[in-house]
Design a protein around this nucleic acid. Structure first.
Length: 467
RNA sequence: UGCCGCAUAGCUCAGCAGGUAGAGCAGCUGACUGUUAAUCAGCGGGUCGUAGGUUCGAGUCCUACUGCGGCAGCCA
C-alpha cells in the first residue's frame, strides 16, 4: 500500500471504464434482493461514492461486516451509473475489509445527531458530513491565508509558544513549569511544588503559554517589513461561550510603514479574499452548510465579498447607539467599552454587514496602540461581523519612544521588562500596524457553525480537554 | 465567574392532575431486481444523571451535588 492513491473525489469525476479501487469508510449500506449499495466516503469530498454489489458476489463474515463505520476497499470496474445521484459507480468484483464497526455499538448513525453529542465523540465525528466539511473548509482556509500573505510579500514568521517575559499583559495565562513533583507510581496525582522560587524553575523565572505574538511579531516587522504569524494561542480565561477557546489559532500580520488606514485595508482585503478562495474551492461543502446549518450563509458570504465594510469611529458608533431608540441592557456612554448587544446591533441591524470601528478611548485599549492628537483616543480598530462579533482586533502601534513609555506607566506597568520592545522605538523606529484574527472565528463565519468548539477538531475549553 | 435552562432506550424526544415508562430513528430477523437519510413487516432494548427529602406511592414535587448547554463578562 502506498500513500499515492486515487481519492473518491477523483473517482467520482472520472470517465467510466477501467479497473479501479475505492478505499473508504462505509456511510450506509442498502440491501435489496438482487443488489446492494454501499456509500463510501474517504473525506476527500462531501459526496459519498456508490459501490454496487450484485447479490452473490460476496458472502461470509467480511461482507456481513460491511456496515456503517466499517473501513473497506472495493475493487471493480468504474461504470456509468443508471441511478440519479451520481455519474459513475463502482461495480464491485473484489473487496478487502480492513476494520469492521460493530453496528450495535457504533455511535455515529446515518441520521442526524446533535452537535453536543458529536462533541462527545470527537474522535469519530469527522466521518460525518458536517465535520468532514468543517475540516475541509478549515484546510482550504489555512491554505488561503498563506496564499494571501505570500502573494503580497508577507513573510511567515514564528513567535514563541512559551513566553517568560511576563509582559504580555492581556488575558489570563497558563503557567509552564518543571517545578511540579512527579507523583509516586500508583499514587493519585497531586500537585506539589519542589520549590516556591521561580528562580529555581526551568527558565529561571515564571513562564507561560503565549496569549499573543503581538510584541514579538513587531520586532520581526522592524527588519522584514511585512510579516505574519499563524499559530496556536492560549488563554486561561474561564469563559463559557460559543466564541472562546482556551487553545486557538491566531493570525497576526504586522506591517512596517503602515498606518491604521492601511491596516484596515489589509483586514478587509484579507477577509474578502479568504472567503472568495474558500467559495471557489469548497463549493460543495458550503452548499451543505447553506442547506443544513445556516440558510443565509451563501447570501451573507456573497454580500461580504461584494460590498465594502462600513467604517466608523468609536465616537460615531456611540452616537448611533444613542440615537437608535433601542433600550439597552447596558447603558451606552462615551468612554465605556461597547457591550455585545451594542456591537451586534451595529453590525447586524445598523449596518447589516461587517463594520470596522476605530479610534477607541485610550483607557479601554492596550498601551501599545498609537495615541491620537486629541489626547483621548488611540488608533485602534475592531472588525465586527454579524453573528460572530469581534473577528479582528488591531491597531497602529505607538512608534514614539517617549509616548510609549508614558503609556506604559499610565497603564500601571513597569517599563523595565519591555526594554527590548522599547528598543524598537530607540533604534530605527517606523510607523507600523497590525491586527490579530481568530482563525476559528473565521471558520465559524465561513461555515455558519454556531459554536466555536465545533470548528476545531479537538477543542480545549474550561474542564474540556478530552481526546 | 454570574444568571438561566436541560439531564428518561445507542440517538432525538414524549411522559407536565405524583399511581413503578412510550414513540421515531438506530440495532436484530425477514421481505423487496437499483437504492440515494431506501421502503415494508416483526423483535429485543431503560436500576428515568447522583445523593437525600416530602408522600401510602416520585421520571413527575423539594434540596444539594455532578455533567452539559445557552446568555453575559473576558477577548480573537
Amino acid at each position: 500500500m502506498d500513500y499515492r492513491r486515487t481519492y473518491l473525489r477523483d473517482l467520482m469525476q472520472a470517465q467510466p471504464g477501467g479497473h479501479v479501487s475505492a478505499y473508504g469508510w462505509v456511510k450506509t449500506r442498502r440491501d435489496s434482493k438482487g443488489v446492494s449499495f454501499v456509500a463510501l466516503n474517504d473525506g476527500s469530498c462531501m459526496a459519498d461514492f456508490q459501490v454496487v454489489v450484485d447479490a452473490g458476489t460476496f458472502d461470509g463474515a467480511d461482507w456481513d461486516a460491511v456496515t456503517t463505520g466499517a473501513c473497506v476497499r472495493f475493487d471493480g470496474e468504474l461504470v456509468a451509473s443508471p441511478g440519479a445521484g451520481q455519474a459513475v459507480e463502482l461495480k464491485a468484483t473484489g473487496m478487502e475489509l480492513y476494520g469492521g464497526a460493530d453496528a450495535s455499538t457504533y455511535p455515529l448513525q446515518k441520521k442526524g445527531a446533535t452537535m453536543e453529542f458529536l462533541r462527545e465523540i470527537a474522535h469519530l465525528r469527522v466521518r460525518g458530513n458536517t465535520f468532514g466539511a468543517v475540516n475541509r473548509v478549515r484546510n482550504r482556509a489555512s491554505f488561503a491565508v498563506h496564499k494571501f500573505f505570500q502573494e503580497r510579500g508577507f513573510q511567515w514568521i514564528n513567535t514563541p509558544v512559551i513566553t517568560a517575559s511576563d509582559c504580555e499583559g492581556a488575558g489570563a495565562m497558563f503557567a509552564v513549569t518543571t517545578l511540579l513533583e512527579a507523583p509516586e507510581p500508583g499514587q493519585e496525582a497531586k500537585f506539589k511544588l519542589t520549590s516556591q522560587d521561580p528562580a529555581d524553575d526551568f527558565f529561571g523565572k515564571p513562564a507561560y503559554l503565549t496569549v499573543s505574538g503581538q510584541l514579538n511579531v513587531e520586532t520581526l516587522a522592524m527588519g522584514l517589513t511585512n510579516v505574519y504569524t499563524f499559530g496556536p494561542t492560549f488563554r486561561a480565561e474561564n469563559s463559557h461561550s460559543t466564541r472562546h477557546l482556551a487553545e486557538f489559532w491566531m493570525i497576526e500580520p504586522e506591517m512596517a510603514f503602515c498606518d491604521l488606514e492601511g491596516d484596515m485595508n489589509l483586514a478587509e482585503e484579507f477577509v474578502r479574499e479568504v472567503i472568495k478562495d474558500v467559495m471557489d474551492h469548497c463549493e460543495e461543502d458550503l452548499a451543505f452548510f447553506n442547506q443544513r446549518i445556516d440558510k443565509e450563509l451563501l447570501t451573507t458570504l456573497n454580500h461580504v465579498v461584494n460590498s465594502p465594510f462600513e467604517r466608523m469611529t468609536y465616537t460615531e458608533a456611540v452616537a448611533a447607539l444613542e440615537k437608535s431608540g433601542q433600550t439597552w441592557q447596558f447603558p451606552v456612554a462615551w468612554g465605556s467599552d461597547l457591550q455585545s448587544e451594542h456591537e451586534r446591533w451595529l453590525t447586524e441591524v445598523h449596518v447589516g454587514r461587517p463594520v470596522i470601528l476605530t479610534d477607541y478611548p485610550k483607557e479601554i485599549k492596550a498601551f501599545y496602540m498609537r495615541a491620537n492628537e486629541d489626547g483621548k483616543t488611540v488608533r485602534a480598530m475592531d472588525v465586527l461581523v454579524p453573528r460572530i462579533g469581534e473577528l479582528i482586533g488591531g491597531s497602529q502601534r505607538e512608534e514614539r519612544f517617549d509616548v510609549l513609555e508614558q503609556r506604559i506607566k499610565e497603564a500601571g506597568l513597569d517599563p523595565e521588562p519591555y526594554w527590548w520592545y522599547m528598543d524598537l522605538r530607540k533604534y530605527g523606529s517606523a510607523p507600523h500596524s497590525g491586527f490579530g484574527l481568530g482563525f476559528e472565528r473565521l471558520i465559524m463565519y465561513l461555515t455558519g457553525m454556531q459554536n466555536i468548539r465545533d470548528v476545531i477538531p479537538f477543542h480545549r475549553a474550561p474542564g474540556q480537554a478530552a481526546f
